[in-house]
């Protein structure tokens, strides 16, 4: 019961904040709204029995990625977008219509699907996730991500630095 109440509260919070993210003209407000989305999603992860992912969500997304976004927004002193949305109006309408069609279509599929409720006791604890992560199935992928991160590190420095 408590689970249900928490879930729907967090889901509503995430929805409202997500709407703010895309409706807000000031990017700083968008960023703060996105942080709210990330935090409520983290709560939902915890309710769905994934405490490890919930914490990693906060550490990586809310703690690192979003701070980076805010940093760039503040360093570049980004102003509000112009009131005129720009682009052609028919295109924008088409985009909205397509998005709505997509949501309705996939939503209908999901609403009709029957999901197994899974095992009664489910907790993806740190140990279990780590055992799978370092098992032969995923070990090479895991090592590959470390190379990806190294490449991103070097790449971002090369791109952002004025003169090396």
């Amino acid at each position: 019961m408590i689970e249900q109440i928490l879930f729907y509260t967090l889901a509503a919070l995430a929805l409202v904040a997500a709407i703010v993210v895309i409706a807000q003209r000031s990017p700083i407000y968008s960023a703060f709204a996105l942080i709210v989305v990330l935090c409520s999603l983290s709560g939902i992860f915890a309710i769905l029995g994934s405490p490890f992912i919930a914490v990693i969500q906060i550490v990586v997304y809310a703690g690192a990625v979003m701070v980076l976004f805010l940093f760039v927004l503040m360093l570049l002193n980004v102003q509000k977008e112009a009131d005129d949305p720009g682009g052609s109006k028919p295109l924008r309408t088409a985009a909205a219509a397509l998005a709505a069609a997509f949501a309705v279509q996939v939503g209908l599929v999901v609403a009709r699907a029957r999901f197994a409720s899974g095992p009664e006791q489910y907790e993806a604890s740190t140990r279990k996730v780590a055992e799978l992560l370092f098992s032969p199935t995923f070990l090479y992928v895991f090592e590959a991500t470390s190379i990806l991160i190294l490449a991103a590190l070097v790449g971002s420095i090369v791109l952002a630095k004025r003169d090396l």
Binding site: C39, V55, V59, G63, A64, V67, E123
Partner: peptide, 22 residues
């Protein structure tokens, strides 16, 4: 007494930065 333990503390200390940024 959380299973994720000190990772939780790590998460919150990274959220604490926002107070200062704001």
């Amino acid at each position: 007494d959380l299973e994720v333990g000190i990772l939780y503390l790590f998460a919150l200390s990274s959220l604490g930065v926002y107070g200062i940024v704001m």
